[in-house]
């Protein structure tokens, strides 16, 4: 594997090969993309798709080392062996033509939701300067966002943060307390634009939560929530339909970038 120093010196270049190798990396949120693939909802022509990551607590044992992601515990190595046996030792940016980082502990509930709840002049309204600080801390505070930034020095990286909580899981009291159900698309777009600009500075392409999946201001429509366990109490995970929207957008942009290159 190349050292971090040598990796930093090179700028990535998209190689026009008939088949693009694309890797979906993340925590348990990669499941929705896998569901999308299994359900035949994604357009994979010319794409060789692989997954790499680990669920929940094991995900924390993935670290960036010499520009590559490696597992630091046996548990995470076991997870990696199950999801991608040929790459359980580590993930190097040069091994793929593009990456989708999905979930990865970067939760829009921590940034967008409180800001949508405090519109201009309303209670909790924060100034642009405070929003900037929040955004910086949100991104910088996520170890895997920092890893994505390193990968983006080598290859195209798309980042899809963990989406809004699923509708119908929180009690209405909780919703009233924590969600602005009146938040408009315009308000969401303004905040997405801010994230987009910050990520663009790191050469990362933000994949916003598609508007058609959003309901009641800042929740995910039930049609895009995971079906595992009958949606009884999982407010976080999404289903194959959601994964398809994300992956198809990433691949479309990857192909577009390849053509323009």
């Amino acid at each position: 594997m190349p050292s971090a120093k040598s990796a930093q010196k090179r700028r990535y270049r998209i190689v026009a090969t008939p088949t693009q190798r694309f890797c979906v990396f993340g925590d348990s949120h990669i499941a929705c993309v896998k569901h999308a693939q299994d359900e035949g909802l994604v357009q994979l022509e010319g794409i060789e798709l692989e997954f790499w990551g680990a669920p929940g607590p094991q995900f924390r044992d993935l670290h960036l080392q010499d520009g590559c992601l490696v597992g630091s515990s046996q548990a995470v190595r076991d997870s990696l062996a199950r999801i991608n046996p040929k790459r359980s030792a580590g993930l190097a940016p040069q091994e793929f033509d593009g990456f989708l980082f999905i979930g990865c502990r970067l939760r829009i509930t921590e940034f967008l939701v409180p800001l949508l709840q405090s519109p201009l002049g309303g209670r909790g309204y924060v100034t642009a300067a405070v929003r900037d600080l929040m955004l910086e801390r949100w991104l910088e505070g996520c170890r895997w966002y920092r890893a994505a930034r390193e990968f983006a020095k080598e290859r195209p990286v798309f980042f899809s943060p963990a989406g809004f909580l699923n509708d119908g899981i929180l009690t209405e009291e909780e919703v009233a307390r924590s969600i602005n159900t009146e938040a408009s698309e315009t308000a969401r777009t303004a905040l997405w634009d801010q994230i987009d600009a910050a990520m663009a500075r790191d050469n990362i392409r933000l994949l916003r939560q598609p508007e058609e999946t959003v309901t009641r201001g800042a929740l995910t429509a039930r049609a895009y929530a995971t079906t595992l366990g009958g949606q009884a109490d999982d407010a976080v995970h999404k289903n194959g339909a959601y994964g398809a929207l994300i992956l198809n957008q990433a691949l479309t942009e990857l192909r577009g970038a390849q053509i323009s290159a």
Binding site: S28, A31, G56, F59, I83, V236
Partner: peptide, 14 residues
């Protein structure tokens, strides 16, 4: 609880 759910989701997909 969240960790348990993540495991379930992940195991189900793979």
């Amino acid at each position: 609880d969240r960790a348990l759910k993540c495991d379930e989701e992940f195991l189900d997909a793979f």
